[in-house]
Amino acid sequence: MANLISRLTGAETQPQMTRRGFLVSMTAVGVAFGFPQASHAAMNPAVPDGTPVTPNGDTFEPSMWYWIDADGQVNVNIIRAEMGQHVGTAIARILADELEVAWENVHITHVDTAEKWGLMVTGGSWSIWQSWPVYRQAGAAGRTALIEAAAAKWGVDASGLTARDGAVTDGTQTISYGDLVAEGLDRSFTEEELAALPLKPHADLRLVGQDVHPLDLDTKTTGQAIYGLDAKVDGMVYGVPMLPPTRYGSKVNAVDDSGAKDIKGYLETVVIEDPSGTVPGWVVVLGKTLHAARTATYEISVDWTSGETANVSEEDIQARSRELIQGEEGSILHTEQPDTTAAFDA
């Protein structure tokens, strides 16, 4: 196992960067992926090679979710993983709509892992509905701060000012977000203040739900966008798991990889067992390339001992459902805490 970890982490040599690579560092709790500043992880559609946008002069950061620079450029920090679903564009659009900034001035950065970002999980269709209130409040904070700054500059009441397309106006005079940032802006909000900020009525949203140019479409089209599969470090190998026949109770008796020996790039097959029995035995096929590891799985024979659910059929599951429905206890399985009142109250 030590050999496996050494090869997986490149521990014997220092990681070397490639054009499409990014840094991988092993920690005691897992793997942290960090994109180097010069990579294409942060997509800037205005630049042909997709390099990250850099701020011009001072920046104003109403929250950790974005900054605005002296050119009025807005860079939105994205904590969700891009898997082809344009999640960066979707989240940036939420913020830009509430901030009242022109879409052509918006850019995104897929941030590194850090505790301050909170739960960085992408899955279960969480990204938008969980990000919706956070990024709307963040956008409203910036819009409010910029309007207040313009009102103070002109000596007028902020309630008579409006913001649109990255500028503030009172109907007779206008100033851009960039100019306000260049003059210096320092405004912070407490959690209570953020929660109390007025948000735009849904009917006034101009970007959400509309057809806009995805911020990372160009780099995806040219192959410059970086995904997890593009990770490269010296000594790295690829692993493809062979799933056990049952979730619980499976055990690996023997592995025959003779049929995979001639596959170019195939390395070996590793059996990972959990002594506690909580996790079933796993077979992981290693290769110098993902293709080699995946191809080898079709040529490898595993002798498994299956768990007790191996022969449970769909018919068995339906029959059990009917049995529960017809029983005195009803169709809900009893738990140790059947009353949910306390949980919902908390």
Rank of each mutant, 00 (worst) to 15 (best):
A150I: 04
R136H: 05
A152R: 15
A150P: 04
S125G: 07
E191D: 15
Q173L: 02
A138R: 10
P198D: 00
S159G: 10
A149Y: 14
D211V: 09
V134N: 03
K153Q: 15
D179E: 15
I147V: 14
V181F: 13
D211S: 07
V156P: 03
D216E: 15
Q173V: 07
G166N: 12
Q137G: 12
S131K: 12
A138D: 11
A140N: 05
L197A: 07
T221R: 10
I147N: 07
T190E: 10
T174I: 01
G223V: 15
E193A: 11
D157Q: 03
G171M: 11
Q130L: 12
E191S: 14
S127D: 15
W154N: 06
H202E: 10
L161A: 04
V156M: 06
A196F: 08
S188F: 13
T222N: 13
V181R: 11
R143C: 07
L197R: 09
E193D: 12
V181C: 14
T219E: 07
W132G: 00
I147F: 09
W132K: 08
Q130S: 14
Y177P: 01
S127N: 15
T172L: 05
G124H: 05
D179R: 09
L185W: 05
A196R: 09
L180S: 09
I128A: 05
A141V: 06
R143Y: 06
Q130M: 11
I147P: 05
